[in-house]
Amino acid sequence: MEDFSKENKYLRAKDRVERLKKFYGNLTSYVLVISALAVINYLTNEWRYMWFLWAAFGWGIGIIFHAIGTFNLNPFFGRDWEERKIKELMREDDEIKRWE
């Protein structure tokens, strides 16, 4: 049973690291691409119309939602909530079986 617990913890930690890598990769891409777009914007019209902000805003919304998912910032339906709900339902199921 202890080996199963260790393996389960390892798999959860591995999944967490994978989600973090994806988020930081996305964030790095965002910074590099938006910076490049800002430079192109400046060189073409010297900030008369800052069109790169549209891309920064749109992609930024995606980054925010990615961060919410990665760092469990959603208090209502995050990963912790899922685990608590699963345990609660398993306890209820055990109680029902005891009374049958």
Score class of each variant (00 low, 15 high):
17 V>D: 09
39 V>D: 02
35 S>F: 15
73 L>D: 04
76 F>K: 14
3 D>P: 03
32 L>G: 05
44 T>I: 08
8 N>Y: 13
57 F>H: 12
94 D>S: 14
13 A>L: 09
78 G>Y: 00
23 F>Q: 03
31 V>F: 12
1 M>R: 06
12 R>P: 01
72 N>F: 03
65 F>T: 01
19 R>C: 01
41 N>F: 07
52 F>N: 01
48 R>D: 09
80 D>I: 03
40 I>A: 12
53 L>Y: 06
89 L>D: 15
84 R>F: 06
9 K>W: 03
91 R>F: 05
18 E>S: 15
43 L>E: 08
94 D>K: 15
31 V>W: 07
60 G>K: 07
42 Y>S: 02
34 I>C: 04
67 A>P: 04
68 I>E: 05
92 E>F: 10
60 G>L: 14
37 L>C: 03
18 E>C: 08
89 L>S: 13
33 V>K: 02
90 M>K: 15
47 W>A: 07
13 A>C: 06
12 R>K: 09
29 S>C: 14
95 E>W: 08
55 A>V: 13
24 Y>W: 14
46 E>W: 10
39 V>T: 13
62 G>H: 01
4 F>W: 01
21 K>N: 12
74 N>G: 02
38 A>F: 10
2 E>F: 03
16 R>E: 05
77 F>G: 04
30 Y>W: 15
8 N>E: 11
82 E>V: 15
61 I>M: 14
69 G>Y: 00
35 S>N: 15
53 L>W: 03
51 W>Y: 15
47 W>K: 05
11 L>R: 11
75 P>E: 08
15 D>C: 09
27 L>N: 04
72 N>T: 03
